[in-house]
């Protein structure tokens, strides 16, 4: 009898482990900081009266689930999918974790909800492109660009992001994709400056690549370091640095082509 209960609980723990790993890796790839991942997973596990120990890193997540008496435990490891920032997943999982605590969800329910969140649609591609174009123009306006600059920044950001999306689709290295995007954007904006349409101080040229700035890795890097997750913070910081470097390389390629001073 006791054996039977134990094996049922073991099955439950295995199932829960699978669900928690899925939630954790989804959070990581959607751009959550380390503390948030740990809190969310602990919250879900405590709703099932299990305790969890975690090892969180940029590319993989490993966890050990224990029951209260620590008489049995389940350990699992899962690779994190490529990072694509998606705040809908973040807010969805956070809301779900509170619902789990409140309503005693089963792990099947959680798994179904995670799959639903995974399939949630992104904004329409053209809408994202135009909004990012407008964001670029907004940057340019903040930097005192002229209306002509704004127009070209819009165009440059729009096409730059388009190129990046295509490059990601074609499975290029992510940093290379950013380099292509920066190159495209600065070529367009720089062309306007070269033709004498833009501002002398090339505001359009600079602001056209600002949409590529690695804001999420940068902020997460600092928040991880402040939280004490220094290893993850450094990983994210280096990632942000390499992204910035690819952007700079893209700009310099087009400065070289146009022979700007």
């Amino acid at each position: 009898m006791d054996q039977a209960i134990k094996s049922v609980r073991r099955e439950e723990m295995k199932q829960l482990g699978k669900v928690l790993l899925k939630a954790g890796t989804m959070l990581m790839s959607a751009g959550a900081n380390t503390g948030r991942i740990r809190n969310t997973i602990n919250r879900i596990a405590s709703a099932f009266d299990y305790s969890v120990e975690l090892h969180i890193s940029q590319r993989a997540l490993s966890l050990t689930i224990m029951d209260e008496e620590e008489s049995s435990f389940v350990s699992k490891l899962r690779r994190t999918p490529p990072h694509v920032i998606n705040f809908t997943i973040l807010s969805g999982i956070s809301k779900m974790s509170w619902n789990i605590v409140q309503d005693n969800w089963s792990s099947e329910q959680i798994l179904a909800d995670l799959e639903r969140l995974e399939k949630m649609p992104h904004y329409h591609r053209w809408m994202v492109l135009s909004l990012v174009g407008l964001a670029g123009a907004g940057f340019c306006a903040l930097a005192n660009g002229s209306p002509m600059d704004l127009l070209f920044t819009f165009l440059a950001s729009f096409l730059g992001l388009f190129v990046r999306q295509e490059a990601v689709k074609a499975n290029f290295n992510p940093y290379l994709a950013i380099y292509f995007a920066a190159l495209t954007a600065s070529l367009i904006a720089g062309g306007a400056v070269k033709l004498g349409l833009g501002h002398a101080d090339s505001y359009a040229f600079v602001t056209s690549v600002l949409f590529l700035i690695p804001g999420v890795p940068l902020i997460n890097s600092f928040s991880d370091i402040i939280d004490g997750n220094i290893q993850n913070g450094i990983t994210r910081g280096v990632n942000a640095l390499v992204i910035s470097f690819s952007i700079a390389l893209g700009i310099f390629t087009s400065t070289f082509i146009y022979q700007f001073q």
Partner: peptide, 17 residues
């Protein structure tokens, strides 16, 4: 405006925009 563009890039829920 720029913030809104970034929000769209990161796929923020529409109710937060």
């Amino acid at each position: 405006m720029a913030a809104l563009g970034f929000a769209a890039l990161f796929n923020v829920p529409a109710r937060c925009l």
